[in-house]
Simulated assay, not measured.
Amino acid sequence: MTPTHAYGKRGGAHRYYISSTLNRGKTPKRLDGIYRLPALPTERWVIETLHRLAPDHDPLEVLARMEVHEGAVQLALKVSALSEDERTLPLAVDRIGRQLQDGERIHEKQDAVWVHIPRRLKFRGGRAWLSGEAPKRNRMSQPLVKAVKWAHELLDANADANHVLQQAPPTVHERGLIRLAWLAPDLQMAMLEGRQKPGLCLEDLRFARIPLCWDDQRRMLAG
């Protein structure tokens, strides 16, 4: 798949991925094949899947390639990102293997660890899911949405251009909320879009000991 974009009637840009077949100007052999993917839901699904398979690694660094077939998705993970040397690679592969779901397979090939997911990727309403699953419904929490936005307003008001606090917010409540502005970006986006961890509420975050490391935050708060 190759990233590309097009412009709508109102001038807005729409990002998506096209297959190598279309990219080379050839006619698709099958009408029911997957030749175009909407970019945003595809990227969200890939990031969520990689957080499940390799929670200790940055999805953008570990993904080498993605192949989408009619009845399966295959993800190639970089060996160099999973392990520092050959001695620890088996441990990394074993950790991924323990995160596999029913029917998923893993194998090593050259400089990548391939994960085979034998389900068709589907899209609807800006969401992506695998065939056989119900599309994930948003669980929008207005208190969480308002809190994340307020946290960034507090940060803008009390920090310099590098987001370093110059003064603390005036109230205890605001000092608790501003911590949300330093959550991992994907966690903040999940809260704004209603994809946060089931049952997560603002009160949990206000009094929780939130770790500084983004990977630790994901293990604690990811849905």
Rank of each mutant, 00 (worst) to 15 (best):
W182Q: 03
Q101M: 14
E48S: 08
A6T: 07
M66H: 01
I96W: 13
G11E: 08
G97W: 10
P28R: 00
L91E: 15
L180E: 00
I178N: 01
L177R: 01
R15L: 06
T27N: 07
I96M: 09
L91C: 02
G97M: 05
A54D: 05
V73P: 00
L180Y: 01
H14S: 04
L77Q: 09
G71E: 03
R10M: 03
A184H: 12
R218W: 02
P185M: 09
I34G: 00
A161S: 10
L22T: 08
K136H: 08
S83Y: 05
A13W: 00
R195I: 00
L130H: 13
L221G: 06
R206I: 15
Q217A: 10
G223C: 02
V145C: 07
V46L: 15
P170Q: 08
P41N: 09
Q99D: 08
A134F: 12
D215K: 13
L205S: 08
L91G: 08
P59D: 06
E174M: 01
R127Y: 07
W150E: 12
A159L: 02
G25I: 10
A76M: 05
L31H: 14
G132A: 04
L192N: 10
N162F: 00
L75R: 00
V115W: 10
H107K: 04
G97A: 03
V93C: 12
V73L: 06
L100M: 05
K146P: 09
Q101V: 07
I210S: 07
H152F: 06
W182H: 05
R105Q: 10
I34L: 06
L180D: 01
S20L: 08
R44W: 11
K78H: 09
E174K: 09
T88I: 13
P170A: 12
K136E: 08
R87V: 09
D94Q: 11
L192C: 03
D58P: 07
P143G: 14
L121R: 09
V46E: 06
A147K: 10
L183W: 05
V145M: 11
D156W: 02
R65C: 02
A13R: 11
Y35C: 00
I178Y: 05
E43N: 11
K197F: 01
G126N: 01
L31E: 12
E193W: 10
L187H: 12
W182V: 01
Q110F: 13
V46F: 14
Q217T: 14
K146V: 06
T49E: 14
D160M: 01
C213W: 13
G125D: 12
A54G: 07
H152E: 04
A134W: 09
N158K: 03
P55E: 13
A147W: 14
E104T: 10
F207D: 06
L130T: 07
T2G: 03
A72T: 01
A157C: 02
R98Q: 14
L60R: 02
Y35A: 00
H152P: 01
Q74T: 01
